[in-house]
């Protein structure tokens, strides 16, 4: 708290450095970075160099891109942010899973919602077979076990058409 009041007095923007697990450093304005709850708490504890051991450079670059854009959010650029979000989730699943793990670790609520919604959209109304294939989930049930679980959950599968496509 003391640091933000002193920066407003001098008119200088307080800068922070984020360090990825690969050792790369990124200097950013505090006002951008505090969207991330984990970092916000570290800043409050007086840190100005933040080591992020669970986030590699590739993922951190994407997360910084997200935070910079969302720091510009106002009443008048809602459409622009919406389009940005749409583009942002277009990466491969591997990238999305890296991002969602990092966003979870860093506690960036808006980004968590965006990524989880995007992954959920791929599951929505899909058949079990399609979900397995899309996410490369190996079926660890034996045929007998699967039959039993299917039987126990038959009530959810009855009376509906499910999408078998893989897009």
């Amino acid at each position: 708290m003391a640091s933000s009041s002193s920066s407003s007095k001098t008119g200088l923007k307080k800068m922070l450095t984020l360090k990825s697990s690969d050792g790369d450093e990124f200097e950013l304005e505090e006002s951008i970075v505090i969207q991330c709850q984990t970092i916000k708490h570290m800043v409050e504890d007086g840190f100005s160099l933040i080591p992020l051991q669970n986030v590699d450079t590739k993922t951190l670059t994407k997360i910084i891109e997200y935070m910079k854009k969302h720091a510009e959010k106002t009443e008048s650029n809602k459409e622009e942010i919406k389009n940005f979000n749409k583009e942002f989730v277009k990466g491969s699943f591997d990238d999305q899973f890296e991002l969602v793990s990092a966003a979870n670790y860093l506690h960036i609520n808006g980004l968590m919602d965006l990524l989880c919604q995007s992954i959920a959209d791929r599951i929505n109304n899909k058949s079990v077979r399609a979900v397995r294939e899309i996410f490369n989930i190996s079926n660890d049930y034996t045929p007998d076990e699967e039959e039993k679980v299917r039987d126990e959950h038959k009530w959810a599968h009855e009376g509906g058409e499910f999408d078998e496509s893989l897009d």
């Binding site: 959920a120 959209d121 599951i123 979900v131 989930i137």
Partner: peptide
Amino acid sequence: HILSFLTTRDVVKTAVVS
């Protein structure tokens, strides 16, 4: 969190996935 964006029917169906 991911499942919270699905209808409950889709969530129950995931029981069979793995």
